[in-house]
Structure formats: structure tokens, C-alpha cells
Simulated assay, not measured.
Amino acid sequence: MLILSSAYLWQLMRYNILQLLKNLRFHSHGKEITDVDILQWANSKVSNSGSQSCMNSFKDKSLSDRIFFRELLSSVQPRAVNWNLVTKGVTDQEKKMNATYIISIARKLGCSIFLLPEDITEVV
């Protein structure tokens, strides 16, 4: 049940973001924004900030340590991340701490949050 609700919430969040991006499509000369566009944007932001992290898809298992997401948030607002609070994301407890911290940063930056830390500790 938890896995189903997590998958549903992730899809709901993704749908909401895509709808928002579709409403902003005039910024991309009328072209509809896709998952590929989002991945390219996120990877570009992280790469331009000097990081080697990348995301291959929204189901990329390497995302489970949440480091890419912290680096993405940091690339958007460099002073947002306190790197002393960042863990390596090796253990389940560290992954949950990272997920909690990511949500906290995202909220401070004004992002819409649809998930709990428990929902995002596993890549579905």
C-alpha cells in the first residue's frame, strides 16, 4: 500500500509540475515541455555548478542517496544548502535524513512539495 501511494504521489507531483510547465510554454517558443526537457535542464544546472552528478531518468536508482537533488537545489540557490548537514546517503537512515533535508530546502525556496521524506527514500 505504501509503495502504491508513493507511486501515485510521485505521478501526481510530476503531473502537476508538467501542467505548470505547459502553462509556461511561451518561454520555450510554444514548444511543449517534456520529461526530457526537465532532465536536460536539471542536468545542465547541476553540471554548470561544477558537479559531476547527473540524472538519467526519474526512475534512476542512483537518485536514492538524494545528492543530485541537493546539488540541483544548490545550483538554483547556492546559499540554500548547508553542506555540513549533508550525509553520504549510504544507510537507510542517512537517505531519510537527506530526503528530509531536501524537502526543507525546497520549501524554503518556495517549491510545491507533494511528498513526505518516507515517500522519496525509494526510487519507484
Rank of each mutant, 00 (worst) to 15 (best):
M1V: 07
M1I: 06
L2Y: 12
I3V: 05
L4N: 05
L4G: 12
S6N: 15
A7V: 10
A7D: 08
Y8T: 00
Y8M: 04
L9M: 03
L9Y: 10
Q11W: 01
Y15Q: 01
N16C: 11
N16Y: 14
I17T: 14
L18T: 02
L18E: 04
L18C: 03
Q19K: 05
L20Q: 11
L21E: 08
K22W: 04
N23M: 09
N23L: 00
L24A: 13
R25I: 13
F26I: 11
H27A: 01
H27Q: 00
S28E: 13
H29W: 15
K31N: 10
E32D: 15
I33A: 07
I33D: 02
T34Y: 03
D35C: 00
V36E: 07
V36M: 14
V36A: 08
D37N: 01
D37S: 13
D37K: 07
I38W: 13
Q40C: 03
Q40R: 10
W41G: 12
W41N: 13
A42W: 03
A42G: 07
A42K: 08
A42Y: 12
N43S: 13
N43P: 04
S44Y: 13
K45Q: 15
V46I: 14
S47C: 15
N48Q: 14
S49G: 12
Q52I: 15
Q52T: 15
S53L: 15
N56T: 14
N56I: 15
S57V: 10
K59W: 15
D60A: 14
K61N: 05
K61M: 02
L63G: 12
S64F: 08
S64I: 06
S64K: 07
D65C: 08
D65W: 12
R66A: 06
I67F: 15
I67M: 09
F68D: 15
R70S: 11
E71N: 13
L72Y: 11
L72Q: 00
L73H: 12
S74Y: 09
S75G: 13
V76P: 03
V76G: 01
V76S: 09
V76L: 04
Q77T: 11
P78S: 05
P78L: 07
P78H: 01
P78V: 10
P78K: 07
R79C: 00
A80H: 05
A80I: 08
A80V: 03
V81T: 06
V81L: 04
N82T: 10
N82M: 09
N82Y: 05
N84F: 10
N84P: 00
N84K: 12
L85G: 06
V86K: 08
K88E: 10
K88H: 11
K88S: 11
G89H: 05
V90M: 04
V90Q: 10
T91W: 04
T91G: 04
K95M: 00
K95F: 08
K95N: 06
M97Y: 10
N98M: 04
T100G: 05
Y101K: 06
I103T: 04
I103G: 00
I103K: 03
S104G: 10
S104E: 08
I105M: 09
A106R: 05
R107E: 08
R107P: 03
R107W: 03
G110M: 01
C111Y: 10
S112H: 02
S112M: 04
L115H: 10
L116I: 00
D119T: 00
T121P: 00
T121E: 02
E122C: 09
V123T: 07
V123D: 01
V123K: 04
